[in-house]
């Protein structure tokens, strides 16, 4: 095994860890902030779901990234390494700033930047880029509307209820958080699994593209550990900084988010879990009172989301040369 393979393996696992650490905060923030469960219990729950997920299903994200954005022939080990390193950096930057942003977009951006530098613009697939761009702008809008409408409906249905209904809003989040974490784990650990397997094939260790069980276990384990660590800066942003999440907001944003993600999956349009969940929280709050949401936080997020792909692409392009020089 070459040194580069080992470097890629480690980087992929770091990315996987950060992926769990970073993106699962969207799922655990509302149950934590609305005190549906203790933070420790929520994080454990999400970690277990993230560990189970990769064994069950999901190839969509990995397929999009591996085949549809750039020409698969252009993806070399150096490209993958540059893309992952830039995604890791972008995740660390946004984590430090406390802004939830999509790890998948960071990886897509990294891939685009590295491929442009190594092969050229012609290796990009316009159709895939359009799909990703549309999803980038559609996700926040869909999340916002779904959160808004479900909140209005819930408020209408709960108008005769006593505050004891909070018990329901809290308990139900345990199931929704588990389901969301399962699907997130399934989709996102795929990226790492795909990258490691691809490296194995290129190395000649594996003869065909079949994910070995130890790769699945390793990827599932890392994303679960990342989840259990808890991206507290991001959880604070989502649970408190947009507005103080109460049980009803947690319930509404989880179900509105899950609805959008499932719906998008059925129609084959990829949406970002991060963007849908964060904007569903804002939608739920604005249905109650438009001024309840601190829109400056929303603006910060939107800027970060738009910047994710270009910034990751730029970093990957800059990282590509030293990598090329080393390996």
């Amino acid at each position: 095994m070459s040194i580069e393979f080992i470097v890629i393996l480690i980087t992929a696992l770091v990315f996987d860890f950060l992926n769990g650490f970073h993106d699962s905060s969207n799922i655990v923030a509302t149950p934590i902030a609305s005190r549906a469960l203790s933070p420790r219990a929520v994080l454990w729950l999400a970690a277990i779901a993230h560990f189970i997920g990769p064994f069950l299903f999901g190839t969509a994200v990995a397929k999009t990234i591996g085949e549809e954005i750039v020409n698969p022939n252009a993806i070399t080990l150096n490209v993958v390494l540059a893309a992952m390193l830039s995604a890791v950096l972008w995740n660390l930057i946004t984590w430090y700033l406390g802004i939830p942003s999509s790890s998948s977009h960071a990886l897509i951006g990294g891939l685009i930047g590295a491929v442009i530098v190594s092969v050229g613009v012609e290796a990009l697939k316009p159709q895939g880029l359009i799909v990703v761009t549309v999803a980038l702008f559609a996700s926040p809008v869909l999340g916002l509307f779904a959160g808004y409408l479900l909140m209005k409906a819930t408020l209408f249905l709960a108008r005769g209820a006593s505050p004891r209904i909070n018990w329901f809003f809290k308990r139900i989040q345990i199931f929704s958080a588990f389901g969301l974490a399962l699907s997130h784990g399934a989709n996102d650990a795929q990226k790492t699994m795909g990258i490691i397997t691809m490296a194995l094939v290129i190395e000649g260790v594996a003869t065909e593209f079949i994910v070995p069980i130890w790769v699945t276990a390793l990827s599932a384990g890392m994303i679960a550990i990342g989840t259990a660590t808890g991206g507290w800066r991001l959880i604070r942003t989502l649970g408190w900084r947009i507005y103080q999440i109460r049980p009803i907001h947690g319930f509404v944003s989880q179900f509105a988010g899950a609805g959008v993600i499932l719906g998008a999956a059925l129609f084959g349009g990829p949406v970002s879990t991060t963007q849908v969940m964060s904007s569903a929280i804002m939608g739920a709050g604005s249905a109650e009172r438009i001024t309840k949401v601190r829109w400056t936080v929303g603006r910060e997020m939107l800027i970060a989301w738009i910047l994710t792909i270009p910034a990751a692409a730029l970093m990957a392009a800059l990282l590509y040369w030293p990598i090329q020089f080393l390996f």
């Binding site: 249905l157 709960a158 108008r159 005769g160 209820a161 006593s162 209904i165």
Partner: peptide, 8 residues
Amino acid sequence: WFRNMVRP
């Protein structure tokens, strides 16, 4: 709860 919902 249901009664209250229909005719609060």
